[in-house]
Design a protein around this nucleic acid. Sequence first.
DNA 1: ATCAAAATTTTACGCGCGTAAAATTTTGAT
DNA 2: ATCAAAATTTTACGCGCGTAAAATTTTGAT
Lengths: 342, 342
Amino acid sequence: MDADQVRNMEEFAAKCGVSRPTVSKYFNDPTSVRETTRKRIEAALERYDFRPNIYAINQNRRLTKNIGIVVPYLADPFFAEIARRIERHCIDSGFSPTLFSAHGKPELEIDILDALRSVKPAGVLLAPLGRASDRSHIEKFCADVPTVLFDSNIEGIGSAFIGSDNFQSVPMIVDYLCRTGEPPCFFEMPPVNPNANKRRNAYVKAMEQLGHEPHVIRVDGRGWDFEDVGLRGGKRVIGEKKFVTNTVLCSNDRLAIGLLSAAFQLGERVGHGEDCTLRIAGHDDHPFSRFTCPPLTTVAQDYEAISNQSAETLFELIETDERRQTRTETLFEGKLVMRKSA
Amino acid sequence: MDADQVRNMEEFAAKCGVSRPTVSKYFNDPTSVRETTRKRIEAALERYDFRPNIYAINQNRRLTKNIGIVVPYLADPFFAEIARRIERHCIDSGFSPTLFSAHGKPELEIDILDALRSVKPAGVLLAPLGRASDRSHIEKFCADVPTVLFDSNIEGIGSAFIGSDNFQSVPMIVDYLCRTGEPPCFFEMPPVNPNANKRRNAYVKAMEQLGHEPHVIRVDGRGWDFEDVGLRGGKRVIGEKKFVTNTVLCSNDRLAIGLLSAAFQLGERVGHGEDCTLRIAGHDDHPFSRFTCPPLTTVAQDYEAISNQSAETLFELIETDERRQTRTETLFEGKLVMRKSA
DNA sequence: ATCAAAATTTTACGCGCGTAAAATTTTGAT
DNA sequence: ATCAAAATTTTACGCGCGTAAAATTTTGAT
C-alpha cells in the first residue's frame, strides 16, 4: 500500500506530520530540529525514501555545495590519482565534487570554467594547463569563484597554490645522482607547464652549486603525450650519442618512461649496476614507475599532502567567505625513491 | 553604463523588448522564434551575456540534458581514454556529461548511481565493476534511467551492451602465438569482471580447437592494482618455474605490464628473438603498452567504435523514449598488434 | 485590400524548494 | 505553578524558470 509515493517535500512533510519548512531545515542540518521531530522525519524517510529536488534546492541559493575539480589531463594517472584523493576529501566534507579534464586543450579549459560558472560552485580546485592556459580568462574566473590552484602554479592567480617544492626535490636527486655516479644531464621537452621550467632551473642551479657544468637536452614535442615524446626524442638523442654523461634526469616520470623504452629498444642497459651504460631518473613517482624496466628511480611527490592541503585550503576559503587578500603558496617536499634505474 | 547587469530572464527579456517566455523558447531552440526576435535577443545577449539559471531550468523538466558516464577505475588509462571519447561525443551532441569513477569499490558504484538519480539524467553510460557490482541495485537503476552498458557486460541489465568480442580476439592471438612459437599458457588473476572470465574460456576453447592442452595459471590478488598483482604473482610463478611453456597470454595488458616487470627483475629476456626465454602477450592495447620494455604484443580494442556506438545507442534510447524491450549486444572485433614481446 | 489559417508571442499559472518574520512550544529559574 | 527567554515550528512570500492556453501577428490565397 505504499504505492502512494511522495512527489515533493510538501507531501512528504504531510506524511511526517510537520510543516514543509521543518523538513527543509532537517535536510539542511538534521541537528537543527528537535529530537522528536527528527525521529518522525527519519521514520517517514524509511517508508518513502524521499529525496529533495536538488535543482529546486540550488535555484535560490547563491552558492551550492558543488566543487569543481579541474585537471589538465586525466589520462595521466598522476592526475587521476590526485583527483581521486581530492574527490574523496570533498565528499567526506559534505560537498559534491565534479571532475573535469581539459584533455590538454586550452579551449577546453576555458569551456570547463564557463560551464562551471553556471553550476554556481562553492569553490574550484584547479590544476591549470600552465603556459597554454588563457591567463586573463582564468583570472576573471578566480575573481568570481573561490579557487585554489594545485600542481601547476600561475603567479598571482587564485587564492592559493599547493604543489611540490621543485627547488628542494630537484637538488636532492641531483645530489644523489652526483654522489653515486656521473653528474646528470637534464632531459626535457618544451615546457607545457611551469613545473618543467622550474625543474630545469633548479637542475642548473644545483649543478652549479656542486661545481658541475649543467647540460640541458631539449627534444621536440607538443601536447601531453609525454611518453611518446620521450621515446622519439630519446631514440634520436641516444642514436646520435648526445648524452654527454651516462646519467639522465628527466623533467618528469612520463618522459622518463618514454626514454626507458628508447634505451631498451636501442640495447642500452639502464641501471646502476656494473654492466649498465645508462642511468635514468625521473620526477613525480608516477603510479606506474614501480613497474618500468628497470623500476624508475625518482622523486615522490607527496600526493596525500597535496590533495589534503588543496581541499582544506579551499574549504577554509569557502567558510571565511570574505575573499582574503594574501595569496598563499604551500610547497611540499619530495622524497627520494631509489629504485634500479639510477 | 552597462553596469546594470540583468539578474534573471525577466529582466533580460525586458532588455530585449520581448516577453520572458519568448526568451525561454529561444534558449530551448533558437530556431523556434521569429528571425527578427532572434536577432533582438542575440543583440541583447552580446551586451548582457545573460545565462539562464540551470537549476531553475531543470527544476520542472522531468528529464535534463545530463548524461552520467560511470567507469570502474579511472586511474586506468584505458578507461580514461574511453571516457574522454564518450565525453566529447556527448558534448558535441548537446548533452552535459559528467564523469564518475567507482575507484574499484562496489559501495562507491552504488553511491554514484544514487547520486545520479537525483540529477535526473537523460541517460547513463555505465561500465560496471562486474562481479563485485550489486546486480539488483543496478537493475533497479536501469529500470528508471535509460542506461547503456559498455566494456563489462552484466547479462540482462541495461538496454544495451557494447564491448569487445573476446571470442574473436582471444582465439586470434592464441592462433598467432601458436603459429610463431610454443602454445601459450594463460595468466590470470581472480576475475573482477566478466571479460576476464570470457577470455579464459575463449583461451581454453581456442587451445582445444588447435589441438593443444590449455594451461591456466591463476595468481592471487584482489582490487584493481593489476600491475601489482602481475608483478608479485609473476615473480612467484617465474621463480617456481610454473610456466609450462615459454609463452604467456595475460588476461589484460595491465597484468602483462606487471608480469613484464617481474620477468625483467628476474633476468628473463622477454621477446620473440633467438636469445629470449619468455614471450608475453596481453589484451586491450592499453595506452602505455607501446612503451613497455619490450613493447607489448597485444590485441587492440576498438576504442573509437566502442565509444561511438555506446554514445549513439544511448542517444537513440533517449529519443525514442519508449523503453525498447529488446536488449541489444554489440561486440567489436579486436586487432592483433604485433610488437616485440611475443 | 480582405480574411481565414498558420505561426508566433504573451498571459497566467505552477513547479519545488529557501527563508525571513510571526507564532508556538519548550526550557529553566523562582 | 508561573513566566520570561530561548528554542523550535509555522506562516507567508519569493525565487527563476517551464508550459498550456489565450491573444496577437503574420502569411498567403483570392
